[in-house]
Amino acid sequence: MTKANRQRLRDAVLYALLLGVVVLLAFAADWPVIQENFLNQEVLRTLWPEIITVAAKNTIVYTAISFAGGLVLGVVLALMKLSPVTPYRWLATAWIEFFRGLPALVVIIGFALAVPIAFNWQPPGGLVGAGVLALVIVSSAYMAETIRSGIQAVPPGQVEAAHSLGMSGSWTMVSVVLPQAFRIIIPPLTNEFVLLLKDTSLLAIVGAATDDRELTTFGRDSVSENFNSSPLLAVALLYLVITLPLTRLVAYLEKRSMVKAR
């Protein structure tokens, strides 16, 4: 047998196997039950329009706040990490390592439940507010490292040129270094945005008020109210509608920056 023929035979076997499994599943699956539990039109109709106007909206709002807050805090941490003042560097390192080392869920529970009980603290925006604050802090730890690497990737000649023109250290950072650093790290930051969007689902643990629920909380509540899993499928689809274009965007940006770097 030639090599090409052997290859063809192997492909044929693989396809036959796949077909077999699909047919088997199609026969074995209980289609009416699946339709009733996952694609129940009546249940799906009750979700509308709150699944968009409340749940999806909140998911996006919480992601945006966590991202923006994390970015601002991340810049501060990155600058501290690059500071000539040793205690600043220690502080930033401690913060970054601590919050990157913990599961995000643990931090959310800590801020929404443990800290308010311990210190009799009323988090602004209620339990969800505390949860979002936790996401701000977790994302700041990840973004600080990304931003620092971006700052260090700006050629030193840029700083020297700005200094030679008499620009102060802070103007140089704001006008020359950070704009170039951010251009370099757009792909990883977009990636961070996607991760953060998925992490807002962890807020389901805090049990938000009706109008504060994000997609996952909304979906979970509808599942238990209707005793039917269709809402979960709708929620999953909505996540994909948001994340898939973004991950494609990341792939595109990475490819483009690779071409540019050449």
Partner: peptide, 20 residues
Amino acid sequence: LNKIRSRIGMVFQQFNLFPH
């Protein structure tokens, strides 16, 4: 230092223009 530097123009081998 910044005031002094603003009175001394400097031109580098690699230009170092701000690309953005």
